[in-house]
Design a protein around this nucleic acid. Structure first.
Length: 638
RNA sequence: GCGCCCGUAGCUCAGCUGGAUAGAGCGUGAGCCUCCGGAGCUCAAGGUCAGAGGUUCGAAUCCUCUCGGGCGCACCA
């Protein structure tokens, strides 16, 4: 809403500048630091001063004179060093906002399908809070893109043939021999059992390096897909994925397709990709040196990969197996519909979720074939993702390489206090990295359990009458809000040092704070309805109210609510998703700060009450929309 | 050695593609519930924006260097 006005102002002023000074300039539109200065600010005169060799204020005066302003602007002032500040017609703007769609029509042609890949947890142990950051960010991105009109396909990549699964297979087959039937019969939580077993296998290898031969043997069987160990691998992977999906479902996170690495192998995706890679001369068979017998991708000579110790990346190992990068190039080609080969598909268990298959159902939705691909993968894998991109480009798929985005975010480590809680000694005051291999980390379900328990206590203390399923449901909603907000409130470029005490805090910068503000705004509306003063807001009447009724603080709330679409769009384009969380927080803070100065139910002046009600309605709609994007559920009470 | 990320209040973090008086939360101190929900609000204290140069009318923001911290640079992913 505010966005279209910003664009109109920028375009209008640009024309004015061209007409009066004969210069091409694309004006930026800012928000002034104080409302008394205006609703929007155009610093163009400051930018033009040097080029035109004139004082900014003079330029501003000249531009202001005779400029026909866009509809809805009621005043233009020259402020400060030479800003052109715009004041909006408050009643009319609020009225227009009341009847507008939150996101309006898509600004640009939405383009084709976008594939977002996230979660991607190795199916060999329980999900931890690092995986949670990935899934929560990925899911937020998906929700933002969909809100902006994009068609999105969500994929969760299951590496069911990798070393990590192999290690747990070794655990069940060699370290603690357990029959297939017994593994199948192990009680839940199966992922917790594997978490410990995986760590034990790691220590077991350390005691005798010869045992690593078992890992190699297992890995080969997993890749071939045949034999006892492959069967065991499938069982483990299946049971763990079921647990991961359940964990994510607690947070409202879901997927369209589970892509299995085993199917990429079984359907020989890489062979097809490999033909192209060899034909194009992207891969080279090494006959000597440390990479003898391997197919490598030479990276030297490009600025992007300058300064590497070893300028060659192994794609096919000397034993004929394929590295992760090789598989990922093939997978990436498939995502863009460039491989010339497709998976089979079938339902995952009985849910409305699809998974890849070797031979699948005859009738299934079309997967893959996207125009844009976003891979949500932590920043430690940037180097590998760059190689995958370079592979696409080397095959001549420059467009696909350009549209292949690695959404890199920093990892989650443990605060010293939390590390100590887990029995890990941390060096003086330093954060401790998690390690699945060592079994060091906070499990996602443990965190959720603790959050729900705390939420239940907090709710029960405030609402004595609540119990049973209703209480459990509210607790789940509040726990979801807490963890999801925690994971997205900080910039993606920053390492999160996870701290239990901070994560369990429902006050201040937190998900429950947002929920509380929303619940309170809803309560006002409910009370009005109970008093027979509810019903639809009359936009025409609002538009005609005296502007003085819109005090600055109420107007600020509306102003902030109106930049929702802008913020979401900026977040989606820059992949700085914390903007969504921060905007929601800003709205909630503004509302909390002012609502008790602006009674609605007890206001005798009907016009003033109507204005306040409209402001709160606009706020509630904006915050509810943002919470929806953030995956923060709205509790009926709390 | 090379590459990426970070350094802003005691702690955790914002600071909108250079702009108006650097802001929140936690913590600390003092207040606010006969009045639409106190998971809230108000006020106070708290800053060499790591450091040094440079560009600019203007730098926390851009450039260079230095110092700290994190993470990468496998026939693991």
């Amino acid at each position: 809403m505010l966005g279209s006005l910003r664009r109109e102002l920028a375009r209008g002023l640009g024309e004015e500048i061209r007409r009066k000074f004969g210069v091409e300039h694309l004006p930026v539109v800012e928000t002034p630091p104080r409302r008394s200065l205006g609703d929007l600010a155009l610093p163009a005169p400051l930018h033009l001063a040097r080029q035109l060799g004139r004082k900014p204020r003079d330029i501003a005066q000249e531009l202001a004179a005779g400029w026909t302003l866009p509809d809805g602007v009621c005043e233009l002032r020259v402020e400060g060093a030479g800003y052109l500040n715009v004041f909006l017609d408050r009643p009319r703007f609020a009225a227009a906002l009341l009847t507008a769609e939150p996101f309006g029509p898509p600004r640009e042609a939405p383009g084709g399908k976008a594939i977002v890949e996230h979660t991607n947890i190795n199916p060999n142990k329980a999900a931890h809070i690092g995986h949670l950051r990935n899934a929560v960010l990925g899911d937020l991105l998906v929700r933002c893109l969909r809100a902006l009109g994009r068609q999105v396909e969500v994929q969760n990549y299951i590496d069911d043939t990798g070393v990590q699964v192999a290690d747990v297979v070794v655990g069940f087959c060699d370290l603690e021999p357990t029959s297939y039937a017994d593994v199948k019969a192990l009680p839940e939580p199966f992922d917790y059992y594997c978490w410990d077993l995986y760590a034990r296998v790691g220590r077991w290898y350390e005691q005798d390096a010869a045992r690593l031969e078992l890992r190699r043997k297992t890995l080969h069987e997993l890749e071939r897909g045949q034999g006892e160990r492959a069967e065991m691998g499938r069982l483990i992977s299946h049971r763990i994925v079921a647990r991961h999906l359940r964990t994510m479902a607690r947070l409202g996170i879901g997927y369209d397709l589970l892509t299995h690495e085993s199917h990429i192998l079984a359907l020989h995706f890489f062979s097809v990709a490999n033909e192209q890679l060899v034909a194009r001369g992207v891969l080279r068979l090494e006959s000597e040196g440390k990479n003898a017998g391997c197919w490598v991708m030479p990276l030297e000579g490009t600025a992007e990969f300058a300064g590497l110790e070893d300028p060659d990346k192994v794609i096919v190992r000397s034993d004929g197996t394929i590295t992760y990068v090789g598989k990922d190039i093939a997978y990436q080609l498939w995502k863009f519909g460039l491989l010339g080969k497709d998976f089979g598909y079938r339902y995952w268990m009985d849910q409305a979720l699809w998974m890849t298959a070797v031979e699948g159902a005859s009738d299934h939705p079309a997967f893959g074939g996207a125009t844009d691909v976003v891979n949500v993968i932590d920043a430690r894998q940037s180097y590998l993702q760059k190689i995958v991109r370079a592979g696409l480009a080397a095959l001549g798929h420059d467009e696909a390489a350009r549209r292949s985005i690695h959404f890199a975010y920093e990892m989650v480590s443990l605060s010293p206090a939390t590390a100590r809680l887990l029995g890990v000694e941390s060096e003086d005051g330093k954060a401790q990295e998690m390690s699945g291999r060592k079994g060091i980390g906070v499990k996602a379900d443990d965190l959720l359990d603790r959050l729900e328990e705390k939420a239940r206590d907090e709710i029960a203390a405030r609402n004595r009458d609540l119990e049973g399923p209703e209480l459990a449901d509210l607790a789940r909603k509040i726990a979801t809000a807490a963890v999801r907000f925690f994971m997205v409130k900080t910039s993606t470029t920053r390492v999160i040092a996870f701290d239990f005490e901070e994560a369990l805090d429902f006050e201040g910068d937190s998900g429950p704070y947002l929920q509380y503000a929303l619940v309170r705004a809803r309560a006002i509306e409910r009370k009005l309805a109970e008093a027979g003063r509810g019903g639809n807001l009359d936009a025409t009447a609002i538009a005609g109210q005296r502007p003085e009724l819109w005090s600055d603080d109420l107007w600020d709330l509306v102003h902030a609510s109106a930049s929702l679409a802008d913020t979401v769009e900026r977040a989606a384009t820059t992949l700085e998703l914390s903007l969504v969380a921060r905007h929601a927080l800003e709205l909630a803070q503004r509302f909390n700060a002012l609502y008790h100065h602006h009674p609605v139910l007890h206001e005798e002046d009907a016009e003033l009450a109507a204005v306040r009600r409209a402001a709160f309605a606009l706020f509630a709609r904006a915050l509810a929309t943002l919470c929806d994007l953030l995956g923060i559920p709205e509790p009926a009470r709390m």
